[in-house]
Design a protein around this nucleic acid. Sequence first.
DNA 1: AATGAATGAGGATTCATTCAT
DNA 2: GATGAATGAATCCTCATTCAT
Lengths: 217, 217, 217, 217
Amino acid sequence: MKSTSMKQRIIDSAAFLFNTKGYDGTTVREIAKRTNCNVANISYYFGNKEGLLEYLVSSYLEGYLAIIERAYIELDSRSSRECLLLAIRGIMNYQKENRHLTRFVLREITLDTTLIREIMTTYLTKEKYYFQAIFETGIKQQEFSHIPIPYAIMQLKGMLSMPYLHPQYMSEVLHIMPYEMYVTEQYSREIEKWVNYTICVHTQKAIDTFTPIPVNI
Amino acid sequence: MKSTSMKQRIIDSAAFLFNTKGYDGTTVREIAKRTNCNVANISYYFGNKEGLLEYLVSSYLEGYLAIIERAYIELDSRSSRECLLLAIRGIMNYQKENRHLTRFVLREITLDTTLIREIMTTYLTKEKYYFQAIFETGIKQQEFSHIPIPYAIMQLKGMLSMPYLHPQYMSEVLHIMPYEMYVTEQYSREIEKWVNYTICVHTQKAIDTFTPIPVNI
Amino acid sequence: MKSTSMKQRIIDSAAFLFNTKGYDGTTVREIAKRTNCNVANISYYFGNKEGLLEYLVSSYLEGYLAIIERAYIELDSRSSRECLLLAIRGIMNYQKENRHLTRFVLREITLDTTLIREIMTTYLTKEKYYFQAIFETGIKQQEFSHIPIPYAIMQLKGMLSMPYLHPQYMSEVLHIMPYEMYVTEQYSREIEKWVNYTICVHTQKAIDTFTPIPVNI
Amino acid sequence: MKSTSMKQRIIDSAAFLFNTKGYDGTTVREIAKRTNCNVANISYYFGNKEGLLEYLVSSYLEGYLAIIERAYIELDSRSSRECLLLAIRGIMNYQKENRHLTRFVLREITLDTTLIREIMTTYLTKEKYYFQAIFETGIKQQEFSHIPIPYAIMQLKGMLSMPYLHPQYMSEVLHIMPYEMYVTEQYSREIEKWVNYTICVHTQKAIDTFTPIPVNI
DNA sequence: AATGAATGAGGATTCATTCAT
DNA sequence: GATGAATGAATCCTCATTCAT
């Protein structure tokens, strides 16, 4: 009895290899070899190599989007700042749990292909909608200062993706192991400082009332 | 008379194509076609495809490092904050002027190859040294708060690289054209806010005396 | 139904083409075309072109060596002269039956490559051992005169290989068809004369008692 | 001042490389590099690569043929046996003095190309004519036994070419250095034994009167 | 006489994919 | 479901050759 299905085993191999060597740099034969199965199975389960790519990217982004959506929904019952922090914590967690896919998707998304453009439309437009809503609400409720929202999103996304786009830089230059618990923890806190000190309005009162939020939501 | 040398023309084509389709996704034939020359010239000038890659990445990172080095040297005559801002402005400029290469190098650097690992050692270790020196000086001189330096570097690098790692996201989702003058300008200012409000110490005096720095040094 | 396996068909084509045009002068495309199959199959079955070469040469020399070994073993039960004649007959036969490979291997062996040097060590050292043993035994038993063995081996190998190293010379200059039965027969007899008159001791008795040996052993 | 002309330097490089790696296995760039000159010079002096081949082979065979012709001419004033021995000694000498070319030409001549076929007609037909004349005269004058001439030529050519077709075999298996003076000497003597004992008639008188011939003619 | 840049054809190899089993 | 054999297209690279200088 094989513990995991062949489909899942292919997914895992592909995630690892795409991550390490890139999509174009990985051959289906390598994936098959790592999966310890025949090449033809990849076509069998995913149609072709591109289908495998699409599957990986889509399922990853679906989960990713769900995180942000959840934070967005909380806007009804929590402050914008809390929602933003929820999103940040959630994303950091999700990325840590899917580190191979995270790096791979973040890299692949920088390419200019039809597939990527479609994904932009499907997922990232929604992501932007949620982030924008959170920021707009914060500004309206005078919790956030009058930041230009797109630039804030850029900064946020830049900071969030950094550890996964440069894992080797982190380990070999900064000597930080990006997958260790306390690293994620601390890096999250640093980003939160950016939220508190750069995004939020700087009344002393605001700073005094910064409340911690639970890690898992 | 050809206005530019064939070597330079190959470089330009390669930068554009590597940028758009990735290194592995680009064929030497495409490069030759775009350069309007014979495939063999690529081997002639760069040995092989990988030689071309190395040339592009190395020359890009050399220029990149020079920017940061210049800011580092200014530590003798300027405040840490000013030096950090100089570095940020310089990098933003350099990236804007080499936008194809910037995106490409930033993406390629995420792969796990021998070449990349060598580059880490050669260039990015130095980059880290300069950044660290600037931050350490700032902390010692009580200009910066007691930030954990590696995490600050991560945030900074994340923010700086973001527009070039997601140009399509910017244009098609955020509707920001990343290469327009005012965009770079404004994004730089937003990152500066992070420096001023999150990195620097929060005495009211410090905030009052934030001085603008000239764009070009 | 294909009568012979693709692997065998590739071997046959390669033997013919390597023979006619040399290893370096033959392209894998030609081999594939002659085999009426796709180029990729050559890599599929033999790894690469060099793997095909190695396969051909090794399997040929294995069979070749077996012939001589058999003659060597007969030293226990026959005279040295008989063993030598057995070897000569056996080699002539083997060469005739593998004429393409024979010519090709004999030519390729004159090159100075790593592969060839390895083959020397593996096969030809053994060949020399067998020949030497036969000659030494003959000399000790006073059947052969005191010939310098290496030179005898040289002469013998020179004569044995000649028809296959110059097939065109034979057909177009000497007008001898080297693959016809009686040609091999007669050439073998001529070489035997060299054994009888130049190698063996010249007592009249010896000459009188020269006994023919059966062609097949 | 360069001591040798570029043309000659190209010839020397080509002879060495063709010898070691074969004609098809050698590139004009390698020849140029070894000659320390530009690739274009090869085309300049010899038209193209094949022209260089033709030049080498032709000039070698011209010299080779001259040797045998000289022996043939001596038929007027000497015995057939002496002439044959003269030819053998002359060829051995010529081959030793042109060892690179010898090996290369002997190997290249085994290929089945137009060029080779033309050379057969031009040179080797003449060679055969001379050998045949010597043997026929010897038989007519009852100096040689009734050998079948083509087979005798084959044996002779086989023995003569052997050391140059297997130089590595000689050095690495037999541990004979084929270019040392005494080796050539002794090998020549061994071939002469074949002439004396296998080719010549076996009257005791004949054997008693075997006269040595001077090495250089 | 000699060169360096440039070319186009062709080299071996590897790729994703398919198909009969 | 799963496989090994087989395919054709495409890969990068190297070849001999030429041309202006």
